[in-house]
Amino acid sequence: MPTLGIAALLDGYFRRRFAAAGLVEASVPLDGGATTVHCWRFPPEADGVRPVLVLLHGFGPPATWQWRGQVGPLSRRFRLVVPDLLFFGGSGTTAEGARTEAHQAEAVAKLVAAVAPPGARVSVAGTSYGGFVAYHVARLLGPAAVERVVIASSDLLKADADDRALLRRGGAERVEDVMLPRSPEQMRRLLQLAYHRPRRFTPGFVLRDLVQYLYSDRVEEKKELIKGITLGNKEKFQLTPLPQEVLVLWGEHDQIFPIEKAFEVARKLGANARLEVLKNTGHMPQEEDPKRFNEAILNFLLPASKSSL
C-alpha cells in the first residue's frame, strides 16, 4: 500500500474539520449539468434561525485548506455555504464563456439559489481572488439578496502596474509562475509572499508534495482564469461602490496585495465600506491569526451580538 504524502494527510484532516463543524459535502449540478459546483454546506435540516454566510476561497488550494480556521467558530452563528470555485477542488464546467471572476460569480449565485432557503438574504465573504468574486456576487444579486459583504486581502483595483510589482517581489516573469508553482523553489517563494511569518525551513520533498497535490490539476484552466481577470481593464470593469455594508479586511504585511491598496479599495467602495487592518499578518490573515479574523467577521456581520470564540 503506497504511503500517503503530507499533503494528502493534511487534506484529510482539513476535511474532517469541516465535517466536525456540521457541514455536509455536496456536488450541485448547474446549467443543465454542464457545470458542477462542489461545496460544503449546512445540512438541509438545519434550523432556519441562523443567517446564511457564503465563504469564497482565494486562488490556490481548495476551500477546505483556506477556510479551515473559520468553519468551526462561524458555523455556530451561521448556516455556511463554502464552495470550491470553478476549476478548483471538485468544481468545473464544460459551458462556453469567458473565464472571468464575473463568470465565477454567476456560478456562485446559482449555487446560492439552489441550496439557500427561498427568499433568504445571505452575506458573502471572499479572500484574495475570492474577494473579486464576492464583489461581483454582491453587485449581481443586489442588496435584496446579499445583505453584507466581506472583502479580505483582495485588491479590487489591481492593474498591470500591480502585477509588475508582484513579479519583482516574486522574482518571476509571469503571474502564473507565482500563483501556480511548478517546482519546490516556486512553492517556497509563494509561501514567503503569502505569509508574514512563514516557516523558517520546509524540506524540499514537502514542497514538491504540495505542488503535486495542490497545483497539478486543471493547470490550463487556471491559467485562463488568471488571464481572464477583468480588474484593471477599464474597458471590461469599473469598480463602483456597493449598496451593501462592506468590511475590507487586510493583513498589515501583505506582499501579494500591499497594504496601501487596502486604503484605496475601501475609499473606492464608498461610504458603506470600512477597513480593518490585522497586524502582524500577511496575505493569509485567516490562517495567521484566525481568532482576530473571525472576531472581525462576527462583529461586522452580527454587530448586535457578543460572540464567544
Rank of each mutant, 00 (worst) to 15 (best):
K291S: 09
G204A: 14
P117I: 09
E176N: 05
P243D: 11
V133D: 01
V28Q: 13
L156Y: 02
V52N: 06
A194C: 06
D160L: 12
G72I: 01
F205E: 11
P83K: 12
G58W: 15
P73W: 15
R169E: 08
G97T: 03
N299P: 02
V81W: 01
D289R: 15
V49T: 14
V146T: 04
N299M: 03
D163K: 11
L231K: 08
P118R: 14
L167Q: 09
R76Y: 09
L302M: 08
A107F: 00
V124D: 05
V115C: 05
K227R: 15
A19E: 12
G170C: 05
F18H: 06
E96L: 11
P258Y: 12
F88Y: 13
P243S: 12
R15S: 07
H283G: 04
R139P: 00
A26P: 00
D177A: 10
V178G: 03
V149S: 01
I6Y: 02
Y13I: 03
A296F: 03
Q286W: 09
T100A: 11
L10F: 11
I259M: 07
A125Y: 09
A107T: 01
V122Y: 03
Q104R: 00
G131P: 00
S75Y: 14
L180F: 07
G171D: 08
L191W: 04
G22N: 05
S75N: 12
P241I: 02
E176M: 08
S153V: 01
R99H: 15
N272P: 00
E252L: 04
K268I: 03
V82W: 12
G90D: 14
P73L: 07
W250G: 01
I6T: 09
E96G: 04
T100D: 11
R197C: 04
R79P: 00
E101C: 06
P290R: 14
K234V: 04
V175S: 07
V115I: 06
F42T: 06
F263S: 11
L278T: 02
D289Y: 09
P2F: 08
L242C: 02
G131I: 02
S128G: 02
L30G: 06
V277W: 00
P61W: 05
A296W: 09
R168M: 03
V246T: 13
R164L: 14
A159M: 03
I256M: 15
V277L: 04
D209P: 03
R292C: 05
L269Y: 12
V108C: 03
W67F: 15
P51G: 14
F88E: 01
L23Y: 14
A159D: 13
S183M: 05
R148P: 02
